[in-house]
Design a protein around this nucleic acid. Structure first.
Lengths: 133, 133
DNA sequence: TTTTGACCTTCCAATGATTGGAAGCTCTAA
DNA sequence: TTAGAGCTTCCAATCATTGGAAGGTCAAAA
């Protein structure tokens, strides 16, 4: 299987597959006589694994760890769980921050006429003139 | 006021102030005889404005727009409001995505022993073996 | 007066994840 | 044989920020 087909099957585009290989996320692909990368089902499986982990918001650093844990038959589930729990915490923190920003901006927007008039509570806030919240 | 003091007052570090100047977010600072950047209250005010907008999650591109709207006395509030509303939508979308990831990962973690045993639902999911959700 | 140390300057590189393009080689089908 | 799709490598850009190196400037202490 060439890189193009591996990309189609795994859902990770060819450019990214080469990149993942270059930074050591996935093992180096074997090559055909002419130098083309060739992939087996196992390797495409790893690519799908990476794709899924990205969908779940893991960083490439974390994914590197997860892939190695997965490839290690004697892995302990504790390490994986810790990684997941830590990742959940980070995401929940991020959600909290975003919610706080949304709340502030919604409030400011509600009080902004949003027409041709120049007075704008949003700009006023940014300029340091806070209104009561 | 030198860049160091401007950084202290505005809360934007010196390195970043130079960077903001170089990409045109803030106007070029005037210089002392020896070439040091000098800042007035007005310029520090702009820096605080940028800082606050970053806190609210605006991109530098959006902030560039906001700064120019702010500096333009004849600005219409409509444009600012649209920018804010669009930004709110993007953040809410991001929150939704994060919440979905958290939900999935929490479920998988709950069913993971998290000990020395090798069986791990999190890895199983990543490897493509979805359990019922 | 010299020296120390804090502060300033510019420039270049790295981060993280991905995307883009250029230049060139290989394969397949017409 | 040639067109074009697919592959190769390498280098650069994105975004916002941080880091370091190499060197000039300023104020106060020795």
């Amino acid at each position: 299987m060439n890189i193009g087909e591996a990309a189609r099957v795994s859902g990770v585009n060819a450019k990214l597959i080469r990149h993942y290989e270059s930074i050591g996320i996935i093992p180096k692909a074997s090559r055909s006589e002419s130098g083309y990368r060739t992939y087996t089902e196992t390797e495409v499986h790893i690519l799908s694994f990476v794709k899924r982990a990205r969908t779940l918001g893991f960083s490439m650093k974390e994914i590197k760890k997860l892939v190695s844990l997965w490839r290690n038959k004697n892995r302990a589930s504790g390490e994986v769980k810790n990684l997941a729990l830590q990742h959940i915490n980070e995401m929940e923190q991020k959600i909290f921050e975003l919610q706080s920003m949304v709340q502030t901006l919604k409030h400011l927007s509600k009080n902004c006429h949003g027409d041709h008039r120049p007075d704008c509570p949003i700009l006023n806030d940014l300029a340091g003139q806070r209104e009561d919240l």
